[in-house]
Write a protein that binds this DNA or RNA. Sequence first.
DNA 1: AACCTTATCAACCGCATTGGT
DNA 2: CACCAATGCGGTTGATAAGGT
Length: 305
Amino acid sequence: MGSKTRGCGQSEEEMEDFRRGPWTVEEDLKLINHITIYGEGRWNSLARCADLKRTGKSCRLRWLNYLRPDVRRGNITLEEQLLILDLHSRWGNRWSKIAQHLPGRTDNEIKNYWRTRVQKHAKQLKCDVNSKQFKDAIRYLWIPRLVERIQAANATSAITASASTSPSANVSTDHQLFNNFHEVGSGQMVFPDDFGGAQVTPSYTSENSSTASDSFGTQVSPMSEITDYYSVPVNNSANPDYYQPDQVSYSESLISPSGYYNNGLDFQSMEQNTWLDGTGGDASYNLWNVEDFLFLQQQINNNTM
DNA sequence: AACCTTATCAACCGCATTGGT
DNA sequence: CACCAATGCGGTTGATAAGGT
């Protein structure tokens, strides 16, 4: 650019005192109206033309994280948690990339979820969130537990649907994401091999950990957008980021769990003994009850920490 | 009721990348 | 090729709501 005078005929000097802090309803309306008419992008000039005393950055952030009509609000569902854990295990803190796979969720929201929920668990377990112990706890305990709970919710909704006189058309599709992490005979869980194949988990047994006291089914909210996305063919050539054969995913590492058991936590006994949640609390978030924590802490302290 | 602690999330900041001139 | 503004991303902060004492 280089010119002192920019779009809408206002000088740089006039633009120096930007507003900061929470957005007002009036500002939101200005931004929405302007984008409705002229579209998004060119955020700095947009801020000026919409008479918003905000930086372009601030406008962009407000729109993308809050005002955009397709932003999903509310609790992160179990399916979304599962997806976040899986994608984070592959890509780390690539929040934007992860958010691309959770329609309606923003990178900011996923980042906040990770920091407040996931890192909290690591803190409570007194282990580093990046430690092998914690990553494996996610891989072998948290994820199977999520799958189990989604499955339970699935079963509950199936029963509800069959009992209903007007069954929801979404019932069969709401849990297609989960069906990519489906169960085959003997309670063994099959995880998609980056959604192009399948890997069998180390003898995950749903009958051992699934009990009548698991009352989390009612907490699961419909997730048709997510599952719609996940119902696309597994070889998604349109999205080269999605499958990266040079990266080791957790599902790949599940191929040979025996060496893992020798070095790390005894997850088999952990699953059998400690993953019974009879609290009936907030099923969306309270994945770990007191016994879980005590046992995990004990295991971690006894092993390689 | 008042105070303190913790959890949550919107918003900001700095840096890297991209694209135009 | 260099420069600069815009954009995008991840880390961090701060306000405030919620819960506990």
